[in-house]
Amino acid sequence: MLCPFLISCTSIKYGKPIDPNATKETVNLYQNLAKISKNHTLFGHQHATEYGRGWLGDEDRSDVKSVTGSHPAVIGVDFSGFSGRPDEVIQNNKANLRKNVVDTYDRGGVTTVAWHFSNPVSEGGFYWRDSISKPAVRYLIPGGEAHETYKEILDGIGDWAKSLKGSDGKLVPMIFRPYHEFDGDWFWWGKKHTSREDFINLWRFTVSYLRDSLEVNNFIYAFSPDNRFLTEEEYLERYPGDEWVDMVGMDNYGDLGRNRNSIDTAALKLKIVSDYAIKKKKLAAFTETGLETIPDTTWWTETLLRSMKKENVRLAYVLVWRNDSKSPTHYYAPFPGQVSVPDFLKFYKDPYTLFEIDLKNIYGK
């Protein structure tokens, strides 16, 4: 058995979460991901166990498991249903997501949380919509007219996070990835709609309020721009500082997509992210990617795997986007009969990739 599967196999010192009061399981997850990423990368899929191709809400099901026999090692979920809706709907969303996250923990898997945060000061949802959306960041930061509203939303997230108890009675750790792809303009928190200073202020307040005021001690905080950088300096343009970030990542569809396939460019960007993480004793991850409908029958091994292996980077996980339950074209992981299944099985069997079935005591010492 390979060393990264054994939690006590090395005395190498790794960094710790930015939360000095992080739970033991959160610290262990952080350090085990660092160890594993020296030789392996966990595979993740957004909303994998909530729904998939032609199904919704089935117990212990995922399209990835239907193909490989194992769930993804990382399950992506979202806080999108935690605000901007009637209270009854919000409470139902929280209950459903609580069960999903606890089930993943009890199986030995890992949860990462995105936040498609519906604009709290205007209509338009989480996307920026001209003539409808307001640039909400400046309203939410300390001194802004919606700051108290924002604190109430965070209070709801904090209470929920502290209610997540596994079958072992422990709080469930999660990787929290707010305000992703902030260097693009499609979300209301995007670069065009807020200043660098206000964005950094929002990030720091969010972490500080959850961690220090609400005492949420089971989050690992992930910073993930889109792929609009070619240097470390460009990558760090809106970085809030090392004391406010546990994991550095990147979302990259464009370099590995249908209209553009540049493995060298994707690998260069992953190296920038990984090198920074190594230098600062942080985690790195390929936080979002994928090819919609996966028409390329060798995309998994010849594009995705090659891009991750090319530069000897250290990545805790790679996550592909969701499989919609109704859309015939919106899916990013294979399901039984999909044309990329044979190649995905090669990807699954490659020693570099880990799935849930491969994880052994990732929350232990």
Results as ranks from 00 to 15, higher is better:
L2K: 15
F5S: 14
T10K: 11
I12A: 13
I12R: 14
P17S: 11
I18P: 01
D19W: 06
A22C: 08
A22H: 01
A22G: 01
L33Y: 04
A34E: 02
A34I: 01
I36V: 10
K38Y: 07
T41W: 01
G44S: 07
E50D: 13
G54K: 07
D58C: 00
R61I: 07
S62W: 05
V67K: 03
T68H: 02
G69W: 04
H71S: 02
A73W: 01
V74W: 02
V77H: 00
D78C: 05
F82R: 03
G84L: 09
E88I: 12
V89T: 14
Q91A: 11
N93L: 09
L97N: 11
T111H: 01
A114C: 10
W115H: 05
F117Y: 14
V121Q: 03
Y127E: 11
R129T: 14
D130A: 11
S131W: 10
I132T: 15
S133D: 02
L140I: 05
L140V: 01
G143W: 04
G144S: 10
E145S: 14
Y150H: 04
Y150S: 00
K151V: 03
I153L: 07
D155N: 14
I157V: 15
K162L: 12
S167Y: 09
G169W: 06
L171W: 08
Y179D: 04
F182S: 06
G184W: 05
W189M: 03
K191G: 00
D198S: 08
D198W: 02
S213L: 09
N217C: 05
N218C: 07
F223N: 02
P225D: 04
T231K: 05
P240V: 13
P240H: 11
V245Q: 01
M247T: 10
M247L: 15
N252D: 15
Y253E: 11
Y253Q: 08
R258P: 00
S262D: 15
D264K: 12
A267T: 06
K269M: 08
L270T: 00
V273H: 05
S274Q: 06
Y276W: 08
K279C: 00
K280I: 09
K281N: 14
K282Y: 04
T303S: 09
L304M: 13
S307L: 06
N312H: 13
V313A: 10
A316K: 02
V318K: 00
P328Y: 12
T329E: 11
T329I: 13
Y332H: 15
Y332K: 05
P334H: 06
P336Y: 14
G337Y: 13
S340D: 13
P342A: 07
D343Y: 11
K346T: 09
F347W: 03
F347C: 01
K349N: 15
L359V: 09
G364T: 13
